[in-house]
Amino acid sequence: MFIPGILITIATFPGVIVHELAHQLFCRWFKIPVLKVVYFQASNPAGYVLHEIVPNKWHSMLISVGPFIVNSLLGMLIAFPAALPVFKFDNANIGDYLLIYLGVSIAMHAFPSTGDANNIWKDVKDPETPFWAKIIGYPVVGLIYIGSIGSFFWLDLAYGVALAVGLPNLLIALMA
């Protein structure tokens, strides 16, 4: 069954808001002026942050990748305790399913957009970019592009589910 991506985006809107808010907060952290923020809209792109060009390559990369870290951590932590009653204890209630929905929604929007990838790409190509930043930047851009292409095949959703549901089970298995 084909489900238009926009419907999935609407259904998982909390993740989009968290993603854009993370961009904005990273800009504030690095003292970068922000010109416009769209936290959520029912079109493509679902959200964006318009800000000044970031002169520091490291800051630029963090502003682009920041939501990946924030959404991944937040999605995992929110879903973790709820994943256990659902998948381990078999005694889940509606609250657990809501937490899993929220965790997956947030985690699946962790992937940086191609816009984010383009920014990092510009930065790493810049001759002034330090060598170590290039070493980190190229694989990151590659992964982001793969993630972006993969979202067509629900890779973002798979990532969200893996992080919010699979990781707790994996950790339990390792800790037991």
């Binding site: 932590l77 879903a79 973790f80 305790p81 709820a82 204890f89 937490l99 339990i172």
Partner: peptide, 14 residues
């Protein structure tokens, strides 16, 4: 709320 629930659920799951 999740962080409050986490330790107990984690202990039980382990």
């Amino acid at each position: 709320i999740s962080l409050i629930w986490l330790p107990k659920n984690l202990t039980a799951a382990i």
